[in-house]
Amino acid sequence: MHIAFVSNVVYPYVTGGAEKRIHEIGSRLAAWGHDVTVYGRHFWDGPPEIMNNGMTLRAVAPEADLYSDDKRSITEALDFAARALPSLRRRLRNGEHDIVVASVFPYFPVLSTKLAALGTETPLVTTWHEVWGDYWEEYLGSLAVFGKVSERVTARTPQHPVAISGITADRLAEIGPGYDDVAVVPNGIDTEQIRTAPRPDAGYDVLFAGRLIEHKNVDLLLEAFDRVCAGRDLSLGIIGDGPEKERLESQCESLSNADAVEFLGFLDEYEDVLGHMRAADVFASPSTREGFGLTFAEAMAADCSVIAADHPDSAADEVIGDAGFLTPPNADALAATLESSLDDDSPPADPVNRAQRFDWDAVASQAETIYQRVIDSESATAEPISDATTPT
Rank of each mutant, 00 (worst) to 15 (best):
T127Q: 12
A224C: 05
S112H: 10
H129Y: 05
L140F: 10
S112I: 04
A117K: 04
P106V: 01
V110I: 15
P177Q: 07
F105H: 13
A116M: 10
G178R: 04
P158S: 08
G133E: 10
T168D: 01
H129N: 14
E174A: 14
N187S: 13
A209Q: 05
F108C: 01
I164Q: 02
H160N: 15
V206W: 00
L222P: 02
K148R: 13
K216L: 02
S103F: 02
E137L: 06
P106M: 12
E214K: 15
G133W: 07
T196A: 03
G203W: 09
D201E: 15
V185A: 03
S103Q: 15
F208D: 02
I189A: 06
L143D: 15
G166I: 03
I213S: 14
D181M: 04
S165M: 11
R211F: 00
P123K: 07
E138Y: 05
V125E: 11
Q159S: 09
A183C: 09
G178P: 14
L118F: 01
R156Y: 05
A173M: 08
Q193P: 00
G176P: 11
F105V: 09
V206R: 05
R171H: 09
V145Y: 09
G203K: 11
G188I: 05
G119F: 02
R156K: 11
F105I: 03
P123I: 03
E223H: 06
K148L: 10
P177C: 01
L124R: 12
R171K: 15
V149Y: 02
T127A: 11
Q193C: 01
D134T: 09
P123Y: 12
I167K: 07
F225V: 08
D205Q: 06
L111G: 07
G119T: 11
D170V: 02
V153P: 15
L212E: 03
A144I: 04
V110Y: 00
G141P: 06
V184R: 01
F105A: 13
L221G: 02
S103Y: 05
Y135R: 15
S142L: 13
S112D: 07
P177N: 06
A117L: 07
E192K: 08
L221Y: 05
D134K: 10
G203P: 04
V100H: 09
V206T: 05
V110L: 14
L220C: 04
R199G: 08
D201L: 05
